[in-house]
Computed example of a mutant assay.
Amino acid sequence: MPHTTLGRSGLHVTRACLGTMNFGTDPHAPTAEPEARRIVDAFLDAGHTLIDTADTYRGGTSEEILGRAVAHRRGDVVLATKGGAPQGTGPNHRGLSRGHLTRALEASLRRLGTDYVDLYQCHVPDATTPIEETMGVLDDFVRAGKVRYAGCSNVTAAGVVSAQWAAQRRGGTPLVSLQANYSLITRAIEAEIIPVCRELGLGVLAYSPLGGGVLAGRYRRGMAPEPGSRLGQWAAMPSPMARGFVAGLLADRHFDVADEVAAVADELGTTAPTVALGWLGGRAEITSVVLGPRSAEHLAANLDGLAFPLPAEAVQRLDEASRFTVVPAVTGQHTAP
């Protein structure tokens, strides 16, 4: 399996990344531990290496299951997790402060059953903590041998610039990756985030490649999501933010794109997920694509889709169907003062 380096680093990763948000022990978890182990083994046996989790996935049980699944072949895995999301109700139970990140990393290492992670990512931005503090504690983790490389997730282009400047000022560890929502229905990162990451040495990990299931044909225009589906569960949450997210994802424009994906799939004699993943697999600006399979069979289909060679005319059609107005980022201006 071909490898590439993650950003401006020596860490080699594969084009496919295994996302483990589905792994859990609660009744609503799509993937219980026996099937999760099958998925992990199949992923590694196929030559892939990068596996991603987070301390908040299924209340931490995703990390526990993953830790047990890779214990016998830890050296084959580029193990990535995230910290910074809320772990309690108090103000110090969340964010990217030294105190919270230190506690979060130690807890993740215990759940994963390892003494280091290859990639530790700040899960969400934190406007209340100085960026110098966050980059300082990430540097301390690296120097202590508990983390090999640092990354971030869901950060703006300005946030990336600020973080890299802070690392440069203190002579510390820079970020080597950014994980972002990217698919045929979510291409906003092309405007500024991808150019800034390219310039400042970050690889891009694309999550939600099937647009939350919209591109896979799991939802229908004008119809509420099924109660047992992921979007159905989010829509039932009391949080207005969760309900707003679902409403935005089920926008008419997104179904227009999904219809074009389905049309291309019919013409090529394949499936809509294969077409959507094949489009992502051809994006040179993306380092790795985070797949979230529910079963080993689902993983195999996703891997085949990611490697599917879309004809140039199909790529052009999908580009046009999903195009949005992009104001190019100004490059060459991100040198630290």
Rank of each mutant, 00 (worst) to 15 (best):
S295P: 02
A158P: 07
A251K: 04
V196L: 12
K146S: 13
Q233K: 03
R98N: 11
R8C: 14
A258P: 02
L291V: 12
E192W: 04
C17Y: 03
I65M: 12
R74S: 10
L18K: 10
I193T: 14
A16E: 00
E63R: 10
G24I: 04
Q233H: 00
V315T: 14
L299W: 00
G305Y: 00
Q316Y: 01
A104I: 07
P125F: 00
L291Q: 05
D140A: 15
V264M: 10
A127E: 05
T325V: 15
R68G: 15
L112E: 03
P174V: 08
L280Q: 06
D259M: 10
L184P: 08
V196Q: 09
G203I: 05
D55W: 03
T331H: 06
M21N: 08
M21D: 02
A272Y: 00
P337A: 12
A163T: 06
T102I: 09
T271S: 14
L109Q: 07
V315E: 06
A163G: 11
R283F: 03
R187W: 02
G222S: 04
A276C: 07
A16P: 01
L119C: 13
F324L: 15
A104Y: 04
G203S: 07
P91Y: 04
N154G: 12
L138V: 11
I131E: 02
F43V: 13
A247S: 07
A301L: 10
N181I: 07
Q333L: 15
V77M: 11
T31C: 09
A272F: 00
T114D: 04
I185N: 09
T81F: 00
V257N: 08
L310R: 07
G90T: 05
S295C: 10
